[in-house]
Each structure stands twice: as C-alpha cells, then as structure tokens.
C-alpha cells in the first residue's frame, strides 16, 4: 500500500489464487486485478474458471490458496496482526455488502412478487424502511423498464424480464461491484437484447465496477474497458477490446475467438 511506484488502486485483486474441485485445478495461481470503475469482461472456453472468479468474489466458493482483496481488504481472510487468518461469517457479511451478483439462472425468489424481490434484502439487511425500500425498488424497476410488473410473480415474466429484475435486485443493495455470471446464457435469443441494454445503460451511466462473464462477444467489445481471455485457470491474454478482438497475440486466443465468432467455418 505504501509502495511509491504503485499508483493504481485496484478494487479487486487476486493474488496467486488457487481453486480446486477435487483433483481438478480450476484456478491455477491466478493473478488478476480490476481497477475502480473498470468494466472487465472475462471470456474463455467453458471450464476455464471464468464463473469461478465471480463465485469466489461473491463468497459462494471458498479458495484453496492465495489471497483475494476487495477494496484493499482480504475477502476470505481477516488480518490478525501481521498474518492472515480464515475469515469468519461476520467479516464475510461485511465484505459481501460491496458486491452484487446477477446469476445465469436469475435465481429470483419465486414465492415473492417482483417488488418484494427488490425490497426483501434492503429491509432485512440494510435496515431500510419498507416505504423507502419500495420507492427505491420502483425506481430500479423503472430503470429496467418493468414498473408495470411490480406486483407479478417471477414465473409470470419472460426470461428477459426476470433477468432484468435480477439486475435490479442486485442493485437494490447498492453494491460497488457488480458481477454478471453469464446473464444471458439461459435466455431465448430474442430476449438477450433487452438484458444487454440494461447492462449497457449501467455501464454507461454509473461508476460501478463491473465484472462480466459472457459469450456475447459483440456486446463485450462494446461495453468493456478490458477483455480477459481465460484458459486453464489463468489469464492467457488480456487487453483493450480492439486489441483482443482484432489482433490477438496468443494462438489459443485466436483459436477461441475464431470458434465463437465464426462458428460455421
């Protein structure tokens, strides 16, 4: 922190992070940084550890080695004097409040109305009054274009609408960092656009830090400040979207992009 040569201020930093599922190494001493306000898209073949990065940040997956920092604080550890110890639930709750996540399967609460989905956590966790939470919920619904759906149940909505509610629900907790885990992968093709538009608006109008895992390359190119190509649990190549999409250096990146961009070749 007092390193004079280090003038960056990464809001997310993975320091040699290892994640294993059994014998399978998902993240192999991953070093990875995201700057405050930066929009970063992670691309790569399935099984390359893309989603795992987000799930570790949301504290849905524990790490097996290394340290993850969020806002300069270790996420999975607590400082104890000089050393780091595994974090307790109290610390995790505190850290989690900086992050919001949008899931591939939406994971809306099916037994609650759309509005209740947006107010439940603010009221219970942030201690916001019900009236205030509702007002804020309606504002968020307006942002995602769903004010007329407030009293419906999730199953009455299309997939695209559900995912927009998912985005609004995460935003209701006022996170500094938004994680999007393949937000359009479960959607019918004609519903993808409406969700991407909402994410695009967020990226353009807010100083949120955004970390996105997606297969929508065209979209990634438009909204991202940086593209990270993951392969075998490491960042194989990263750079500005134009560099990665027009002039990738690594053979592996070229092969992947060729496969996803011209699947008919």
């Amino acid at each position: 922190m007092n390193d004079a040569t280090d003038n960056r201020d990464p809001i997310i930093r993975f320091d040699k992070v290892v994640k294993r599922f059994g014998d399978h190494v998902v993240l192999d001493e991953l070093d990875f940084e995201v700057q405050r306000g930066e929009k970063v898209t992670i691309i790569g073949p399935s099984g390359s550890g893309k989603s795992t990065v987000l799930r570790i940040l949301m504290t849905l997956e524990e790490i097996n080695g290394g340290v993850v920092y969020v806002g300069g604080e270790p996420l999975w550890h607590q400082r104890k004097g000089e050393s780091l110890e595994p974090a307790g639930e109290q610390h995790l709750r505190q850290m989690r409040s900086h992050l919001g996540m949008v899931f591939q399967q939406f994971n809306l609460f099916p037994h609650m109305t759309v509005l209740r989905n947006l107010t439940e956590a603010p009221v219970q966790v942030l201690g916001v009054s019900k009236a205030e939470a509702k007002q804020r919920g309606m504002e968020l619904l307006e942002m995602v274009g769903l004010t007329d759906q407030a009293s419906k149940y999730p199953h009455q909505l299309s997939g695209g609408q559900q995912q927009r509610v998912g985005i609004a629900r995460a935003l209701a907790m006022r996170p500094k960092i938004m994680l999007f885990d393949e937000p359009t992968s479960a959607l019918d093709p004609e519903l993808v656009g409406e969700v991407l538009n909402v994410i695009r608006t967020l990226a353009d109008e807010h100083d949120l830090t955004m970390l996105l895992v997606t297969h929508e390359m065209h979209f990634a190119r438009q909204v991202s400040d940086r593209i990270c190509f993951f392969d075998k649990g490491r960042i194989k190549e990263q750079g500005k979207p134009e560099e990665i999409f027009t002039a990738p250096k690594e053979e592996r990146t070229k092969a992947f992009l060729k496969a996803v961009l011209d699947p008919d070749d």
């Binding site: 949301m58 504290t59 849905l60 709750r93 989690r96 409040s97 992050l99 919001g100 996540m101 899931f103 399967q105 994971n107 809306l108 609460f109 439940e120 956590a121 219970q124 966790v125 629900r169 995460a170 907790m173």
Partner: peptide, 23 residues
C-alpha cells in the same frame, strides 16, 4: 429447493435464519 435460492440469498447478505424462514 434449488441451490440457486440459497446462493441468491447469500449474495444479498440475508441472514441464515431469515433465509431459512422466508426463502
């Protein structure tokens, strides 16, 4: 109850008791 429901509740920082009784 789908695993994603617990994960969503966790991501929203709902307390585990609240998650159990209300989700």
């Amino acid at each position: 109850v789908a695993k994603g429901q617990r994960e969503a509740a966790r991501a929203l920082n709902l307390a585990s008791a609240r998650t159990f009784t209300h989700i």
